[in-house]
């Protein structure tokens, strides 16, 4: 009997609530996509994708908790690492378009 199965209200469990919260984070990510597409500068896009990536890490972690599969946290960790790599790589690339890489 894990905490995820604890009933919250009206027959819904905590797991249900966490899935809905993950969906909320995904909706926020969709909103952030506006900045990633519109820009206007490349740095804006990188920034939006970085924030998106943080959101995705939270989504992955919440999914791991809600589905009762703690090993999913590994994926979230990998993603946090590569999100950071992506941010510093692209942001350094945007300076003189790769001239200082």
């Amino acid at each position: 009997m894990s905490l995820v199965d604890a009933s919250l209200a009206a027959g819904y469990t905590l797991g249900d609530f966490l899935l809905v919260a993950a969906a909320g984070f995904a909706v926020l990510a969709v909103g952030m996509l506006y900045r990633a597409v519109v820009g206007p500068t490349m740095q804006d896009r990188v920034l939006a994708v970085n924030v998106l990536g943080t959101n995705t890490v939270v989504i992955l972690a919440i999914l791991g908790a809600a589905l009762g599969e703690p090993t999913f946290l590994d994926i979230a960790l990998v993603y946090a690492l590569l999100n950071f790599l992506m941010a510093i790589a692209i942001s350094k690339f945007t300076v003189e378009r790769g001239g200082v890489l």
């Binding site: 090993t71 999913f72 590994d74 994926i75 990998v78 690492l81 590569l82 950071f84 790599l85 510093i88 790589a89 350094k92 890489l101």
Partner: peptide
């Protein structure tokens, strides 16, 4: 991730990619 491929998600491919990504990170910094 490489060593625990038998008991959790991951394996040689993912672990190798992460190790390479660490080198990329050093290179970009």
């Amino acid at each position: 991730v490489t060593f625990h491929g038998g008991g959790s998600p991951g394996g040689g491919f993912q672990g190798g990619a992460i190790v390479a990504a660490v080198v990329f990170m050093i290179a970009f910094a």
